[in-house]
Simulated assay, not measured.
Amino acid sequence: MNCPQYMYEGQSLSCHCLVNPASPGFPPATAQWQGSSPGKKLVITDVTRDDAGRVFMCSLTWGPANDTIVKTSEYELIVAYPPPSPPVITGHENKSVLLVGERLTLTCTVTGGRPLVTSLSVRCWSGVQSEPSAMTVVNNSVTLTFSIEAVEARHDGTECVCTGDWEGGREAYNASGRIVLTVIQGVNVLAWQVVAGASGCVALVVFIVVVVVARRGQRRENDDNISAEFDALNENTTV
């Protein structure tokens, strides 16, 4: 057979069931797709995913009447298509906080596609150095784990990008998954939370400050009133 390993959606399949010219036998054997005339091509126009998994049988016949089946070979039509969605990075979410010195482990996963992606890579800018672990394949998902032993302050704002290589054919898989690291010193956690919080939280802080100032002013006014009353009492009781 001269059939391709993969077909891609929209292509047309055309392949032959052939006798090996190096050993045709005597008299020469005949090869044909079952249900067709000898030498006829197998033709499928406009291949779709619905054609995936179809099996065709190529039969080699030989004998005085060319009616003895000597060998058969199967051809399964595999329709190639890329993963339907971009890589997904887990282990850290945008806007969540990492402390300096903390270990970061990211997992990149690509699901689906036929064939599956052949490789994954995670790359972070700003000179982050790490060694990815070996890839794992579970069902129809390919996963790569990537670790940074200890994040540093200079990694704040670093973008980590995960990409996958899909070698199923002409239809390229160019999608990528991305996250941005937020790294701060431990003593700055409270300040960061106030700044990064909702405006309602900031308003609450301002309200508390106003209340405290008002109470201090009221307390000072009360103290002045008490002092005036005490002075008046002294004047009335002086001999």
Rank of each mutant, 00 (worst) to 15 (best):
L116F: 11
L116M: 14
L116W: 12
V117E: 01
V117K: 03
T118R: 10
T118S: 14
T118N: 09
S119D: 12
S119L: 07
S121R: 13
S121L: 10
S121K: 13
S121F: 09
S121E: 11
S121D: 13
S121N: 13
V122R: 03
V122E: 04
R123K: 14
R123P: 09
C124P: 09
C124F: 11
W125H: 15
W125L: 15
S126R: 15
G127E: 04
G127C: 01
G127Q: 03
V128I: 15
V128M: 13
Q129N: 14
Q129F: 13
S130D: 07
S130W: 08
S130P: 03
S130E: 10
E131Q: 11
P132S: 03
P132R: 05
P132M: 04
S133Y: 04
S133C: 00
S133F: 04
S133R: 05
S133E: 08
A134C: 00
A134T: 05
A134H: 04
A134K: 06
M135N: 03
M135F: 05
T136L: 00
V137W: 00
V138P: 01
V138D: 07
V138A: 04
N139R: 10
N140W: 04
N140P: 05
N140Q: 11
N140I: 11
S141Y: 00
S141E: 03
S141P: 01
S141I: 01
V142Q: 02
T143H: 00
T143P: 00
T143Y: 02
T143N: 00
T143I: 05
L144A: 00
L144I: 10
T145N: 09
T145F: 09
T145L: 09
T145P: 01
F146D: 14
F146R: 10
F146V: 10
F146I: 09
S147W: 05
S147M: 04
S147Y: 03
S147T: 11
E149I: 15
A150Q: 12
A150G: 07
V151G: 08
V151D: 10
E152I: 09
E152T: 14
E152M: 13
A153N: 08
A153Q: 12
A153M: 12
